[in-house]
Simulated scan of single mutants.
Amino acid sequence: MTKVLIAGESWMTTSTHVKGVDEFSVHSYVEGVGPLKKALEAAGHEVTHMPGHIVPTDFPGSAEALGRYDVIILSDIGANSIQLAPGVFELFTPGMDRLQALADWTRDGGGLVMIGGYLSFSGFQARAAFRNTALAEVLPVEMLAEDDRWELPAGMCANVERAGHPVLGSAGGQWPALLGYNRTVLKAGAELVATINGDPLIALSEQGSGRSAVFTSDCSPHWAPKAFCEDWSGYQEIFSGIVRWVSKDI
């Protein structure tokens, strides 16, 4: 059974209600991990979810801690959340370089996946900030220096470049539309499985004795609408296939 850690895919929202001269704020916590976690568990994988607000304190920073998992998935969680542990950010004491540790773990045989979102790759206003980190070296794509979001409000379907690739399982070639993605550039030597708008959607690479993969759109709304992440059987096939590929199960 493949042991998977998903870091991210949660957020907190504050809304202000103004009624005449009176106002009050309402706060809520939301998790977007549901479709991905459900799909991977249904495919037989053991999944641990680490919400975004837990990442700064609990994300594994050593080979031993990372080694408890076969696959690490980063989804909509920025580089700062991983790098700036409270001891570093609040107490100004040296800590672990957790992205360097993650890159080293990948080269030593781990399976790394990055899924797109507003805080993935470069992200919204480049705030995800992975481009100038050690992790950038072990992904199959190059990241842009600027805001890399490509919104597709009218929807656009992926184009399968490698029909029959084991990552795709039985997903076929006709996929529901997606509403956006993070724009990246394929690295030399990486394998391109699917594109969207002419850019990488699914890309794979060998990294030392490990593997890495990207899915540059979302695993949940808003870029992955219900038709893609809940109603389509190919969703489970694709994400389980990516996990199996980076863990060398296929």
Rank of each mutant, 00 (worst) to 15 (best):
M96N: 10
V113G: 01
M114D: 04
A129C: 09
M96S: 14
S122P: 08
G109Q: 05
V138S: 06
F124R: 08
L99Y: 03
A126C: 03
E90I: 06
L91T: 07
M143R: 11
T133A: 04
G123W: 13
G87V: 00
L84Y: 12
A128Y: 00
Y118E: 15
T93I: 14
W105E: 06
Y118Q: 00
L135I: 01
D104S: 07
L139G: 08
Q125E: 04
D104N: 10
P86A: 02
A101T: 14
D108W: 00
L74T: 13
F124I: 15
I115C: 06
A103V: 01
Q83Y: 10
A103P: 03
D76V: 01
I73P: 08
L84V: 15
T93H: 01
L119C: 15
R98F: 00
V141R: 06
W105D: 09
A128K: 15
L84P: 06
S122V: 04
D108G: 00
R107D: 00
L91Y: 11
L84E: 08
T133C: 08
E137S: 03
S122R: 13
I73Y: 14
L84W: 13
N132H: 07
L112V: 04
P86V: 00
F121D: 10
G117Y: 11
L112W: 12
F121G: 07
R107H: 06
F124W: 15
F92I: 02
S122L: 08
L99N: 03
D76Y: 01
L84G: 11
L112H: 10
I82S: 06
G111M: 03
Q100F: 08
V138M: 13
D108N: 05
F130I: 08
F92G: 04
P140D: 12
R98C: 04
F89T: 09
A126H: 14
M114V: 05
N80K: 13
A85L: 06
F124H: 15
R107M: 04
G95S: 14
